[in-house]
């Protein structure tokens, strides 16, 4: 859980509401991500929503609490893992003959585990986009123009 030992961040009202809503936002992002091949959504939208939930923590509780949850090193690792996973899925398509071939079993329609590599590609894009946008926000917030002290 998020504890409130720091006096950083916004007021008590904002912190309380954030504690209530943050799990729902994260869960909605995971839903959008995993059901990308059945309902509207996908890896990009789910990644941005999950990145927004971490940004929400950072805006309400200050940067220290958010960076404890997901620090910059792990964000960089996640982003690179996403990119490598996506290109690996693309190269694994050579098992079926061509680049980006959907070589896995297609499965039943409207099931969660169906559509072959599309679910895996969605997860790869989610890792890349979510970690990358969170990292970008951290870099832009921590960056300050000197000379104004």
């Amino acid at each position: 859980m998020i504890n409130n030992r720091d006096s950083q961040g916004m007021s008590v009202i904002v912190k309380t509401i954030t504690r209530l809503t943050i799990g729902l936002i994260l869960l909605y992002g995971v839903y959008i991500l995993l059901h990308g091949h059945i309902t509207p959504g996908g890896g990009f939208a789910g990644g941005v929503i999950i990145a927004l939930s971490f940004i929400h923590i950072m805006l309400a509780f200050g940067k220290n609490v958010a960076l404890e949850k997901l620090n910059q090193t792990w964000s960089k690792i996640f982003e690179s893992t996403g990119a490598l996973l996506f290109i690996t899925i693309a190269f694994l398509g050579f098992f079926g003959g061509v680049f980006f071939n959907n070589f896995l079993d297609k499965g039943e329609h409207f099931e969660l585990f169906s559509a072959g590599t599309i679910l895996l590609s969605n997860i790869a894009i989610f890792l890349k986009v979510g970690a990358g946008l969170f990292l970008l926000f951290v870099a832009l917030v921590l960056f300050k123009i000197g000379g104004r002290k």
């Binding site: 959504g41 996908g42 996506f86 693309a90 980006f100 329609h109 599309i118 590609s121 894009i125």
Partner: peptide, 21 residues
Amino acid sequence: ETGAANLVTSVILDFRAFDTL
């Protein structure tokens, strides 16, 4: 051909996956 019920996802991650790359 792709097994995905969402046609947009089946286009951007299967038929046109090169664009997504």
